[in-house]
Amino acid sequence: MSSPTVLYVLEQFMLAEHADGEYGLMAALGPGFCSELVLLQWKEIH
């Protein structure tokens, strides 16, 4: 369930209000010992 949950969290992050340049960290754990980390940075597109 971790992989689909990451997409839900990403969607929620994108829908929320953020200051320009704000950072976030998205992490997921897979089967066995598998991990994914993504550093996110919010940028306003004008």
Rank of each mutant, 00 (worst) to 15 (best):
15 L>Q: 11
10 L>Y: 07
44 E>K: 15
44 E>D: 13
11 E>S: 09
40 L>T: 07
36 E>I: 12
14 M>C: 04
24 G>N: 13
38 V>Q: 05
34 C>L: 14
21 G>W: 04
30 G>Q: 09
16 A>M: 06
45 I>Y: 10
25 L>R: 02
29 L>I: 10
20 D>P: 09
30 G>W: 08
26 M>C: 05
17 E>W: 04
12 Q>W: 02
39 L>S: 15
11 E>V: 04
43 K>H: 14
12 Q>F: 00
21 G>E: 03
22 E>M: 04
34 C>E: 15
18 H>P: 07
33 F>Y: 15
15 L>K: 14
44 E>V: 14
11 E>D: 08
27 A>P: 08
9 V>P: 00
24 G>L: 06
14 M>W: 04
6 V>W: 02
16 A>Q: 10
5 T>R: 10
15 L>C: 01
44 E>H: 14
10 L>A: 03
11 E>F: 04
7 L>C: 02
39 L>P: 03
39 L>Y: 12
37 L>D: 05
33 F>S: 12
6 V>P: 01
41 Q>N: 08
24 G>F: 07
13 F>H: 05
26 M>N: 06
13 F>G: 02
46 H>C: 12
19 A>S: 10
25 L>D: 05
25 L>H: 02
34 C>T: 13
42 W>V: 08
34 C>D: 11
10 L>S: 00
38 V>Y: 12
39 L>A: 13
11 E>I: 00
33 F>K: 14
22 E>S: 07
11 E>N: 01
21 G>P: 01
30 G>N: 10
28 A>D: 04
31 P>K: 15
40 L>C: 07
21 G>S: 02
7 L>K: 02
7 L>A: 07
16 A>D: 06
37 L>K: 12
18 H>S: 05
32 G>L: 09
8 Y>N: 05
28 A>V: 08
26 M>L: 15
17 E>K: 08
5 T>E: 09
41 Q>I: 06
31 P>H: 09
14 M>D: 00
25 L>M: 03
14 M>T: 06
39 L>V: 11
25 L>I: 09
16 A>F: 01
41 Q>D: 05
29 L>A: 15
44 E>A: 13
1 M>I: 00
39 L>W: 12
44 E>Y: 12
40 L>F: 15
23 Y>K: 11
30 G>E: 09
39 L>Q: 14
45 I>T: 14
16 A>N: 13
35 S>Q: 13
28 A>P: 01
37 L>T: 10
36 E>K: 13
40 L>Y: 12
19 A>N: 11
26 M>A: 09
35 S>M: 03
2 S>K: 01
27 A>T: 15
34 C>P: 09
23 Y>G: 07
27 A>R: 15
9 V>L: 04
